[in-house]
Amino acid sequence: MMVSVLIFIGTLLVIGIALFLAIVSIYNGLVGLRNRVKNGWSQIDVQLKRRHDLIPNLVETAKGYMQHERETFIRVTEARAKAMGAGAGSPREVGQAEGGLSDALAKFLLTVENYPELKANENFLRLQEELTSTENRIAYARQAYNDDVLQYNNKIEMFPSNIIAGMFQFLKSEFFQIENVKERETPQVKF
């Protein structure tokens, strides 16, 4: 009698410890993923800031050549202000604001086509390369971020980690998309 009770308690103990260890490892895995998602987001943030910093220079360089395109400049400047304002928002809000900026930039660069002198300007060429690179960086940072988000969200939804996620309130992260019809056509000029 005594022995069987002891065995019963021992078994319970072993199962309990195993369960506890499993929970700990799943929890730690989730925390690690969440941190990666956070880090990925801050990487995107860095690149978006780089994009915002680039625009005043671009506008300043172009202004001397494009005196009759006030509207284009205003549109770009406003879109930039909006995008900067959305900086602290959710990925969706940021994505929308950045999409607006992408649109304005695309139109701006389309207008540049009519100004061959500006296109030959060394300073402008340099800024344009920076812009191309920045768009690429945003794309690659987004790529890495979305990969992490996918992995994280999968973990949150799948059994058994979904139980732990529910217990400790791990929330699903949003994907980052720059919402724009012509989103993949990065604003660039054809030579």
Binding site: Q43, Q47, E129, E130, T132, S133, N136, R137, Y140, A141, Q143, A144
Partner: peptide, 11 residues
């Protein structure tokens, strides 16, 4: 720039 882009992509 190209190298830095790839550095970002590769993490």
């Amino acid at each position: 720039n190209i190298v830095e882009e790839m550095q970002i992509a590769a993490g």
